[in-house]
């Protein structure tokens, strides 16, 4: 039983990382209709900035958190304003290609601005171990699960009750009509990019604390994207659960069957679920009038 619980706890922790980044994919898609394939790279750059702040100061977690969140927002707004907004109205494939181009640039930037070395990101007690009845978990792993549920609650409240959240849903539904109704779509997009950067940055930082910080961290985006598809590309909260499902499935398959099948476990689940629910577990079926 302990073995199963250990697998589940590890699965939830890595799944929460995937979930936060998956939510970032979904929130941009939901509000702009765009798939941002540089999400993993943005997460990596924010983690590197957090590391620079922590090593450049006394490592106070509040300073690191405020500095990193501030950077994440400015970084996302800059990307949106400089690279994405000029592409509005252009074919969606061109817009996606811009995000792929950005991902390559961001990867190169990390080795140019920092280095190609692995680093131990020590931040407060993030690396410390906590014992839950014989099951050891790192503080950063607990933190990432907590952050995921905070993000889920925050997003649910935001979309359901805030005027801005309703505006975002309106833009997602029909940006032309939303504009006619007075919704400033540019602002909605900026907010979506900022929120996605904060969420994926949080995942990157906590992953770096629990595991390591290196230029291969961008690979988290590749693991999180299938979680978005699983949860539903237009479902921010569904994407979070998609991440948890993939993380737990990977660990259970690795623990009970074989490590070789671990990487494909998530994709097998996605294929099966998409065959039954083509719009993902929580995605909405779009009905188009002809």
């Amino acid at each position: 039983m302990t073995y199963l619980l250990e697998l589940l706890s590890s699965g939830l922790a890595i799944g929460a990382v995937y979930g936060l980044i998956a939510m970032s994919f979904a929130i941009i898609y939901k509000s702009t209709g765009l798939l941002n394939f540089s999400q993993g790279e943005m997460s990596m750059i924010i983690a590197y900035v957090a590391w620079s702040i922590s090593t450049g100061t006394d490592g106070n977690p509040f300073i690191v958190a405020i500095g990193s969140i501030g950077f994440a927002i400015l970084f996302a707004l800059a990307v949106e304003r400089i690279a994405i907004r000029p592409m509005m109205g252009e074919p969606i494939l061109s817009q996606i290609m811009v995000t792929i181009g950005l991902s390559v640039i961001f990867r190169a930037l990390v080795t140019l601005l920092w280095d190609g070395l692995p680093h131990n990101m020590e931040l407060a007690a993030g690396n410390a171990l906590v014992d839950f009845g014989g099951i050891q978990v790192r503080v950063a792993q607990i933190a990432v699960v907590v952050m995921l549920f905070v993000a889920i609650a925050g997003m649910w409240t935001f979309f359901r009750y805030s005027r801005f959240g309703l505006a975002m849903r309106a833009v997602a539904s029909d940006d032309g009509t939303a504009q006619l109704m007075g919704v400033k779509t540019g602002r909605v997009q900026m907010a979506a990019w900022a929120a996605s950067a904060v969420m994926s940055g949080t995942a990157g930082v906590l992953f770096a604390i629990a595991f390591e910080l290196s230029p291969s961290l961008y690979g988290l985006g590749l693991k999180a994207f299938p979680a978005t598809i699983l949860g539903g590309l237009d479902s921010v909260i569904g994407s979070a659960f998609g991440g948890l499902i993939i993380g737990v499935a990977e660990n259970l398959v690795g623990g009970y069957i074989s490590s070789s099948l671990k990487e494909i476990a998530g994709f097998v689940i996605i294929i099966l679920i998409l065959m039954i629910r083509p719009y993902g577990l929580f995605g909405e079926k779009r009905i188009e009038r002809l």
Binding site: E6, G254, K262, E263
Partner: peptide, 17 residues
């Protein structure tokens, strides 16, 4: 004895085994 796919980062299940 086990094999993992290149690029894997989380070794929780392998180390539990």
């Amino acid at each position: 004895e086990t094999k993992y796919a290149r690029g894997q980062k989380d070794f929780a299940s392998e180390m539990l085994r």
